[in-house]
Write a protein that binds this DNA or RNA. Structure first.
Lengths: 367, 367
DNA sequence: CGTTAGCACTCTACGCGTGAGAGTGCCAAA
DNA sequence: TTTGGCACTCTCACGCGTAGAGTGCTAACG
């Protein structure tokens, strides 16, 4: 568990303390890349034959032994090949990986897929998850962009033909929340009030000028001082804002869970179970929110670096998206620690910047 | 006892042609129930010892052989126990199963869970899926209630502070669809038009009187004859209606996929893969839509009765919910053919009636 | 002094044969 | 019609031996 702390420390500070020789570095790189590709523990002989390191297997063996002593590789059993440890992957990601930006073709393909679809926001997130999953062959997770603090933007009240009233609340960050008002409660609490469209419009207009930009508790206080109908609606609105505040990660769009199922390490259903559970409850995202909020860019969390026990055999590659002070969403992929990091990282990065662009163009420039 | 059962069969109408003796019936019932419980092919000896049928194993064996000849049981291999065939399950479900209504405790528990939550519609469906999954220990699927033909109800246009305009369309069935209007497109196409809140309100009012109750093509035609701004918005609205028409099953809420993963028949991940894929694409629901629309109540689809190849080893128990001519949604569970039908069927039935109640009270009574 | 070849050793995966156990089908007796 | 008996079949778990891949160590080499 000390290792775990060290690893996380490293993740933060950038440089690992370990100094490696060039040979060790290239052996580690080769081991990681071969293992990622084949999922088979890699031995010295097959390594030199496949990667032409220009030295003999024996030399590679001694390098491997050194790497193992450093905790970067491990041994399933005495006479099996080596497998990278979480720390090994960490080092690989930090300084060994030849991380390319995405090809132009990949970029175009992704951009093209995005352009295909009308941007109703949910469809859009679903699409992002699907592209991410397809492009990385991992499970993808995308959350909607939400402000950390919900603020009042605009309210509309609509009297429907069947007698219900609909409340549409636009938050300051552009998200929309709607609610059907209970007709009986309304008539019970406001028996003397006219509840036709004109009265509703008047109340909405009042609320729109009075509440602009306010947070949930502010709305509650201010609304209390307004006339009966507006006050009532104000309380409902405040409740909506509170709800929006309460959910850190409310709704997640996932895709490509089958991709993870395909991986040999999860071929056995029971292995996947706890992970699936965590994904679907989506609490694993909670831990990411503070990290990603504090510092943008792509974050990689490998195996045991994950605080969640169920996730000790998976890695996450995540990035935030959205306008910094307006609304923040998360997107990323989840796969076995044996993940194609050099593919996943640039993909997540690219899609997050793309979503930034799209969101900002959609919201218009800030005034 | 016997007469009573026969009478009940008759009352139901539409019996499978096969006539079974009482013994065959009770053997088939015992085989199904034992296999559902244990997932192990059941042999004659263990059957009499566990179910005290009052006859010897040899007798049971001959009954089994007869049932096999009728295609109701099958044999994994010569010297293994019997397993119900799809047809066997079908017969069981139709006339052998002692289907109880749900216990009062179960009902109360379900009702209680529903009452816990504020009814924002998505949360509500998610909850329904979760309850369904938990209560049946299967995978649950719930779709939102949609009209088969989307009709215009009410439109609101909101000018936001940042310069975008928001269009909120309430369909006649009460569903809401919102869209952000592209500000630049708007200004390009309508250069001479004032686009402030007053102009938007006027346009909305016009559309609300002109378009009430119309379908997509009708909206398109009528809108063409309106003044510029209203005409433009009308086209957008028509597009929204078309979209709503196009998607048969747009968004599905699933839960409890892990429950299926837990079943021994799907312990191997590869088995589950195609099924997972189908669920997530959710096209398997399309086949259900016509059936469930034509005739309400709970429908059971067993193994090969499923037209979709990937679903040959799973059963569905589904029911529609919603007001008949207003909006129709689907809900149900998916599990191995070896499913606890006597539990799943009443649960699906109960939850669907519960959702009916809730929906109807929410929409108010029809005028 | 780092690198390499050689060698003994270790561990897994796989194929094979065997025996126990569960279940069947058939037949003759009750 | 039901039952007991019996021969037969098939799977599954176990043990065993072998092939193969890989390691670690040591001694020789440049």
């Amino acid at each position: 568990m000390t290792d775990e702390r060290i690893a996380r420390e490293r993740a933060r500070g950038g440089r690992p303390a370990v100094e490696l020789t060039d040979r060790q570095r290239s052996v580690l790189r080769a081991v990681v890349e071969d293992y990622v590709l084949t999922a088979v523990p890699v031995g010295s002989k097959s390594l030199v034959s496949r990667y032409g390191l220009g030295v003999s297997p024996a030399t590679v063996r001694s390098a491997m032994a050194e790497l193992e002593a450093l905790g970067l590789l491990s041994h399933p059993h005495t006479s099996a090949g080596r497998v990278p440890s979480d720390l090994g992957y960490r080092l690989y990601v930090e300084s060994l990986m030849r991380e390319a930006e995405l090809d132009t073709t990949d970029r175009l393909m992704i951009r093209h897929q995005f352009s295909q679809v009308q941007l109703t926001s949910n469809e859009w997130l679903r699409l992002a998850a699907s592209i991410l999953a397809g492009s990385t062959r991992s499970a993808a997770v995308v959350t909607p962009a939400r402000s950390r603090r919900a603020r009042f933007g605009h309210v509309q009240l609509v009297a429907l033909a069947d007698g219900t009233r609909l409340l549409v609340l636009v938050l300051a960050d552009g998200n929309v929340s709607q609610r059907r008002l209970d007709r009986y409660a309304l008539e019970r609490e406001l028996p003397d009030e006219a509840l036709d469209q004109a009265a509703l419009d008047a109340a909405a207009a009042l609320l729109n000028t009075e509440l602009a930009g306010l947070s949930a508790p502010q709305v509650r206080r201010r609304a209390a001082k307004l006339p009966a109908l507006a006050a009532h609606i104000g309380q409902v609105v405040s409740g909506q804002l509170e709800e929006a505040d309460a959910v850190v990660v409310e709704e997640v769009f996932t895709d490509g869970i089958v991709n993870v199922l395909e991986q040999p390490e999860f071929a056995e259903g029971t292995k996947l179970r706890p992970i699936l559970e965590v994904i679907q409850r989506s609490d694993f995202l909670e831990q990411l929110v503070p990290v990603l909020t504090r510092r943008g860019g792509v974050h990689v969390i490998i195996g045991h670096e994950n605080t969640n026990d169920a996730m000790h055999e998976v890695s996450l590659v995540f990035a935030p998206y959205g306008a910094p002070d307006r609304a923040l969403g998360l997107l990323g992929v989840l796969g076995p620690t044996r993940m194609r990091y050099p593919r996943a990282i640039p993909t997540v990065r690219y899609i997050s910047t793309l979503m930034n662009e799209l969101i900002n163009s959609e919201y218009g420039e800030p005034q």
